[in-house]
């Protein structure tokens, strides 16, 4: 790890100015991903600007019933927040499906969104990786790619985004508020993360020095049921093979409207618009759920090690929708 300077920011504007001023600077919040990367040599900032002292640690109710979640709200506090648990079960469930109790106590909202792929090659500086070192190649394509992308990947990068929370935010149509030197801008979460394309080194559309200040989540329509289902290699404390977030409104035994996003399949939380389209007005049956999943997954391009993700995603979506459309309200 390179030696670095450390400073605590007193206000958001000066934090942004401090990081903007130096290309080798980075924000530090919970640290659970950045400190990890600094140890591994994946990140080597020479100035850390600690933003945990900024007043961004609140969850506020918006006039329309939505929530404004501060960037430094800890994952555990967000998952436990009464309004989140009551109104946005998918978000609480997704947060609680991620990491461990200790990590959720440290990790922040913004840090969770900005966490980087867990691709084993990305995290190992002795192997080629276009995301870590553009132009060096991708070791995963010809190597171990069990956890990698089946949707939206490029020849340069097949990494997946590891966040559970972000998958939930994607079905909730959340908006990320970002502070830059020209003031605040609002980025829909669906546009916040990128597909790898030609430039896999950029996970998001954030520019250097821009600071995530909050995530705004509009309310779910009344009668909508939402949930999160994560499939992993062990029962807890593991990254997803496949996960699904969904919010469903039903009308009798038909689906009125469904919002669906997959985790573990792509470089970003994958909003399944084709599946949503297929479900609009469809009868709420296992067959319809599977057909909707297949409509989405037809575009999937598996690697040698991860073809299983396609049926797994289909089955997991069907299982979650079954639960959301049939179970008695708790």
């Amino acid at each position: 790890m390179k030696p670095f300077d450390y400073s605590r920011a007193d206000d958001a504007g000066s934090a942004v100015a401090a990081v903007m001023a130096r290309p080798d600077a980075a924000f530090l919040a919970g640290g659970t991903n950045l400190v990890d990367h600094m140890k591994l040599g994946v990140a080597a900032p020479e100035l850390l600007v600690d933003v945990t002292g900024l007043p961004l640690d609140r969850v506020e109710e918006l006039p329309d019933g939505g929530l404004r979640i501060g960037a430094t709200v800890r994952n555990s506090d967000l998952a436990a927040h009464p309004l989140v648990r009551r109104r946005l079960p998918v978000l609480s469930q997704a947060l609680l499906a991620g990491a461990s109790g200790q990590l959720r106590n440290a990790a922040t909202t913004a840090g969770n969104l900005l966490q980087r792929t867990r691709c084993g090659y990305f995290q190992d500086v002795t192997t080629p990786c276009n995301k870590r070192e553009p132009g060096s190649g991708c070791a995963a394509i010809g190597g171990w790619n069990r956890y990698h992308a089946v949707l939206g990947a490029s020849e340069h990068c097949v990494a997946v985004h590891p966040s559970d929370m972000a998958v939930a935010l994607r079905v909730l149509d959340a908006v990320v508020t970002v502070l830059g030197e020209d003031g605040e801008r609002r980025v829909p979460v669906g546009e916040f993360h990128r597909l790898p394309g030609e430039a896999p080194e950029a996970d998001t559309v954030l520019r250097h020095g821009e600071l995530v200040t909050a995530v705004e989540v509009p309310p779910l329509p009344a009668g909508t049921r939402s949930g999160y289902r994560k499939v992993r290699d062990r029962a807890s404390y593991a990254f997803a093979l496949v996960s699904v977030a969904a919010a469903v409104e039903t009308d009798g035994d038909r689906v009125r409207e469904a919002r669906i996003a997959f985790g573990g399949l792509a470089h970003k939380p994958w909003r399944a618009e084709r599946a949503e389209e297929a479900l609009r007005g469809a009868s709420a049956t296992d067959e319809a759920f599977r057909e909707a999943a297949e409509a989405e997954l037809r575009a999937a391009r598996p690697l040698p090690g991860n073809g299983f993700k396609i049926p797994m995603a289909r089955n997991t979506l069907a299982a979650l929708l079954r639960e959301l459309t049939t179970e008695e309200r708790r």
Partner: peptide
């Protein structure tokens, strides 16, 4: 290709957790 164990940590080499 590289000759190394790619999943060389506890996040990738899984052993049971208490939940298992």
């Amino acid at each position: 290709g590289t000759g190394h164990v790619v999943n060389h940590d506890f996040a990738q080499y899984h052993i049971p957790t208490s939940a298992d």
